[in-house]
Computed example of a mutant assay.
Amino acid sequence: MGEGGGQAVIFADAFAWLVDPANWSGGKSIPVRIGVHLLYCLGAVLGAALIAVPLGLFVGHTGRGGLVLVGGSNALRALPTLGLVTFLYLVAGGGTAGVLIGLVVLAVPPILAGTYAGIQDVDRGVVDAAGGMGMTGAQRLWQVEVPNAMPLLVGGLRNAMLQVVATASVAAYVGVETLGRPLLDGLRVLDYGQFVGGAILIALLAVVLDVVLAVVGRLVVPAGLRLSGTTRSKRRRTEPAPVESGGSTA
């Protein structure tokens, strides 16, 4: 059987595994594992947001500690996912709290980067004008900087959610019934249909959550910012390319 035929068989087995009624009932069914996976993802991103958003707002608004923030964020990104989750699981005495803490640590950098970059991206002229109108520092932050930073902040949340959806799969290595369990079980017994089926479920969950956050982003981002962003995008597409001026050939 050729390579194409082998792939077709694997995807056929994956479809058969996905539609098998036996996988949709019981305590270790697909819906239960989706629910567990989703709870870990939502809990991790929420916990990371409670840490990263205030810190990013403070550093972006005051300008203090930006170098430390960038360095610390890059260091967290470099942490090995499976090693971190396993280590914290063992430190927590085998409890699932260690897994959740590990996912929170991994979700902090993209949210922190998005929040900090969003505040730094705000036009300083607008912020200075708000100060000239008599606004206090807190008023400038919440009424000017945060609304303008919202697109990048939401983008950081979306990046964190996508990363956590993929990362939560490794929790199966320490006994948590996430969608990583079909990957682990399928690999152990060389059941590639189950393996691919689990991967498809993880990908679909990531797409659904990203779409939900995109809709939330449209609701929380001020309409003026969305319109200005669309206008700038259209202008870049319609503006002619600059023509380099050359010397006279006469």
Rank of each mutant, 00 (worst) to 15 (best):
S228L: 13
S245N: 07
R140E: 05
I202C: 01
P151D: 05
V176F: 11
N148S: 11
G156H: 04
G197N: 10
P242N: 14
E239Y: 09
G197A: 11
P147I: 01
Q139Y: 09
G229N: 13
F195S: 00
L183H: 02
E239M: 13
E145R: 00
P147H: 00
G217I: 05
L225P: 01
N148C: 08
A199N: 09
V164E: 00
V146I: 10
A171H: 06
V212D: 04
G193H: 01
G193N: 03
L209G: 04
V215N: 06
V164M: 05
V176Y: 01
G224T: 14
P151H: 06
L190S: 13
L201Y: 05
L204Q: 07
V221Y: 00
Q163S: 07
V215E: 09
G180H: 02
G156N: 03
R218M: 03
V144G: 06
G180T: 03
A168T: 13
R236L: 15
R140Y: 04
L190W: 12
V221G: 01
R236D: 15
T238W: 14
E239K: 10
L153F: 05
V207P: 04
G217A: 10
L179G: 01
L184Q: 15
L179W: 00
V174A: 07
L204K: 07
A160H: 01
L205I: 15
G247T: 08
Q139R: 11
D185Y: 06
L201Q: 06
V211L: 11
V144Y: 04
V211C: 09
L190K: 08
P222F: 10
G186T: 09
Y173S: 06
F195W: 04
G180L: 01
V176P: 01
G217E: 03
T238P: 09
G175F: 12
G217D: 03
S169Q: 04
A214C: 08
R235I: 15
T231C: 11
Q163L: 11
Y192N: 11
E177N: 15
R218V: 02
S245D: 12
S228I: 13
A168D: 02
A241W: 14
A138R: 13
L204T: 13
E244K: 14
R236K: 15
I202A: 00
L201A: 05
P151A: 03
R158T: 04
L205Q: 06
L209V: 09
E239A: 12
L227I: 15
P147K: 00
L213C: 07
G197L: 04
K234Q: 14
P182D: 06
G175C: 08
E177D: 13
V146P: 01
A149C: 06
T178M: 03
G137P: 06
T167W: 00
V165G: 04
V146G: 02
R218E: 02
A203R: 05
T238N: 14
G247Y: 12
S169T: 14
A199F: 05
V189I: 13
A168G: 12
A172H: 05
A172S: 15
K234A: 15
L201K: 02
R218H: 08
L190I: 13
L213F: 15
I200W: 00
A241Y: 13
A206Q: 08
V208A: 14
L157D: 00
G247H: 14
E244G: 15
L152M: 11
